[in-house]
């Protein structure tokens, strides 16, 4: 599939804006999950602003596609998208993780419009998605379910229970996306609990496996289209990403999994995102 340059340019612009919004939620004095939120930002932009069926005027529209952040800690990327879609008011960004805000530390469907499930305790989002996909199929709906998992999260056994169930039930209305950034809370995933050979594992569990570059918009869009077109089995996109992508001081560093930023880092991050926006617009 070939995409028009205007489409790609728009999505790249949104990606940079999402990263800027993510940064705005972690001003000096606050702590936040910068690394895993920015590694998935391009995929989130592609999903919400191109690929998924989204109705910002009615977040409960039964025809909508669902996005479940199984790696709930990276929800800042989703909050940024909900703000850009106008579902959440921009004034909420500075109030994230405060008593007065609607944006909780982890996804809370009661508090935040557009959030589809409660996640945060890792490993449960793919199972929740299996339930959604079963219900949609029972109802004869053609809506799809998208689930973002972390690569570190894959050490939760329940992920593989859900993977088996999606295979047994032949749920081709699910697309899982693994944010394969290679780094988890305390270090490199390969060193902490290196489960390796991800493609072989998902294949063995009965999934259609598609490997993509999670920062290349064409690769992301093609992967999503290919998964949607695939019938008879669930699909997983193994998205190669860089933790902290876009912020030079944070890229590839576990220290920015959940961290506070110095005044200098915050200013630098803003500058880098502004520059990226200018480049896209140029």
């Amino acid at each position: 599939m070939v995409y028009e340059e205007s489409v790609l340019k728009r999505l790249r612009r949104i990606s940079a804006q999402l990263r800027l919004d993510i940064l705005e939620m972690i001003p000096p004095g606050k702590v936040g999950h910068l690394g895993g939120s920015s590694s998935i930002a391009d995929v989130v932009a592609a999903l919400y602003f191109h690929h998924m069926r989204v109705n910002p005027k009615d977040v409960a529209d039964p025809k909508r596609d669902r996005l479940v952040f199984s790696k709930g800690h990276a929800v800042l990327a989703q909050y940024a998208a909900l703000v850009e879609l106008g579902i959440v008011d921009r004034s909420e960004l500075p109030k994230v993780k405060t008593l007065d805000g609607v944006l909780q530390g982890h996804p809370d469907m009661d508090k935040t419009p557009g959030i589809e499930a409660v996640t945060g305790s890792l490993g449960q989002g793919l199972s929740i998605s299996v339930g959604m996909a079963l219900a949609l199929r029972l109802d004869g709906s053609d809506s799809r379910v998208y689930t973002v998992c972390g690569d570190g999260e894959l050490s939760e056994g329940q992920i593989w229970e859900a993977a088996m169930a999606a295979d047994v039930f032949k749920l081709d209305n699910i697309t899982a996306i693994v944010d394969w950034n290679g780094i988890q809370a305390t270090g490199c995933t390969a060193e902490i609990f290196g489960i390796g050979k991800l493609a072989d594992k998902w294949n063995a569990f009965g999934w259609n496996v598609i490997e993509i570059d999670g920062h290349d918009m064409v690769s992301i869009l093609q992967g999503l289209e290919s998964a949607k077109a695939h019938k008879g089995q669930p699909s997983v996109l193994l998205a190669k990403t860089v933790k902290g992508k876009g912020f030079s001081f944070a890229e590839g560093k576990a220290a920015f999994h959940n961290a506070g930023l110095t005044d200098e880092q915050f200013a630098q991050g803003r500058e880098e995102m502004r520059k990226m926006l200018q480049e896209v617009d140029a």
Partner: peptide, 13 residues
């Protein structure tokens, strides 16, 4: 465990 979370997804739909 999977059963409980799958049920959550069904209830959400």
């Amino acid at each position: 465990q999977n059963m409980a979370s799958i049920a959550a997804g069904l209830a959400l739909t």
